[in-house]
Design a protein around this nucleic acid. Structure first.
Lengths: 246, 246
DNA sequence: CGATACGTTGACGGAAATCAACCCCGGTGG
DNA sequence: CCACCGGGGTTGATTTCCGTCAACGTATCG
């Protein structure tokens, strides 16, 4: 491993989408010791019940947090993209209550908890930024709850595509309203609380309305205005502004 | 206002259900300046879009966090009971993305943000406890997402009653498996993502199965084992253990 | 004592699940 | 080279759960 870790760049990019960082803070992030690993799709990163001693930082690819109900049906609770630390909460919560796994092939960096604690202690403002990051994730959970409870399938799916476009744009992964979307329709159903069959019908509905295209692993948003209107999308909950952090 | 604020007691009780506090930390909490107000049912505490300069601490009664979809249907995202600080996230997130209101008559304490920041700074461990508290709330959101997406109405409702019994027990508000439940069936529907009519049918189903009684504002759990089995309830996600906080 | 909000019940309709079959495509091995 | 295989996508038939609408009962409170 190098003394400097340019792998941290996606993280810095992400944090700068929600706050401002000083040069010293960026330098401290770049000094964070981490171990990078390439993973195939559908690999577990953290399992429900684990007591991890490290955090995961997604560098490339898509990961997901999920739970199963008693009869084995899966609910995906969040998707994670480059720059995300999906299990930041393990810093302060001992037993993990969700599973975390790759959805597509991923590059993942592992950071030992002591290094994170040390960083939060030596740079309290960074500690607050990480806190802010977990709060924004909670805000996304709340929006997803509204979608799960009170939106029809087509509105919910439209909302999800809007969220992906917005989040991926914030870290520079969108070109011409297109982005890589390496997810099966079944996995999308696990996120929307729908069956794979019904996801298929709704996708076709969105295609027929000329709102999106989805071929192989590429999604293109054809009509942002109408897609956002259908999904009742308001990006406030993503808190993508460089707010002050105490 | 007094120099000491025994109003903080519910908060201390709550925090002690998820961590251990030193005498000095408890004293610091007791010194927190706050303003106490009695409120009627269905009053707004924080509105979506606000930029609050204070936090709310529930001392008595039930409050709820909620959002509306475009056609005005409400989704309740969380219920708050004595000891909860429902808008702790406003410390690090400027614009609030949810509304917060009382469900029953409530006693609420208001704490100015600067006092909270000061407390987190002078007692970093308390800062971490508050962080932990927000992370536990996020964990509850995740469990609710699983319930919303993948549980039938009756399982979901059973789960909610189990959660209430467990949380209220942790702060000493349960006697003989009974607790005060000052919520209408319509409000319960807003939390479960169901219509009020269907809530009524499911409540009757739980009554017929001799799992609960619900008269006026009192709920009694008659058969914890079967209720927990029906709701697929596992309290891990509440993190009600006195874990270490770094 | 009447106003009003909440709870209860029945009839009906619609959204999504389930079941089952089939297609398409990329990969793999004979 | 092709035959086979398997995962994912697509489609149709049927069922189930829950929403909506409407009516009526009931309790609480001014």
């Amino acid at each position: 491993m190098d003394a400097l870790h340019p792998h941290t760049l996606p993280l810095i990019l992400k944090l700068e989408s929600i706050t401002t960082l000083s040069d010293e803070e960026k330098a401290a992030l770049l000094r964070l010791p981490m171990q990078v690993r390439s993973m195939r799709a559908d690999q577990d990163l953290v399992r429900e019940g684990d007591r991890p001693s490290q955090c995961c930082l997604i560098l490339d690819g898509f990961a997901a947090t999920y739970k199963f109900n008693a009869e084995g049906k899966r609910q995906i609770l969040a998707f994670h993209i480059a720059g995300d630390i999906p299990d930041l909460q393990s810093l302060h919560i001992e037993v993990v209550d969700t599973s975390l796994g790759t959805v597509s092939p991923c590059k993942v960096a592992f950071i030992q908890h002591p290094h994170m604690h040390e960083l939060c202690h030596s740079h309290p403002r960074l500690g607050n930024v990480f806190w802010r990051e977990t709060l924004i994730n909670a805000s996304i959970f709340r929006q997803w709850m509204l979608c799960l409870g009170r939106l029809s399938a087509s509105r919910h799916m439209a909302h999800l595509f809007c969220e992906f476009l917005t989040r991926l744009k914030a870290i520079g992964l969108v070109k011409d309203n297109s982005f890589t979307f390496p997810i099966t329709q079944g996995e999308l159903g696990d996120a929307l609380g729908l069956s794979g069959v019904h996801v298929n019908r709704v996708v076709q509905e969105l295609r027929e309305k000329n709102l999106i295209t989805w071929e192989r692993t590429t999604v293109t948003v054809l009509d942002w205005e109408r897609l956002a209107a259908l999904g009742e999308f308001d990006p406030t909950y993503l808190h993508l502004s460089r707010n002050r952090v105490a």
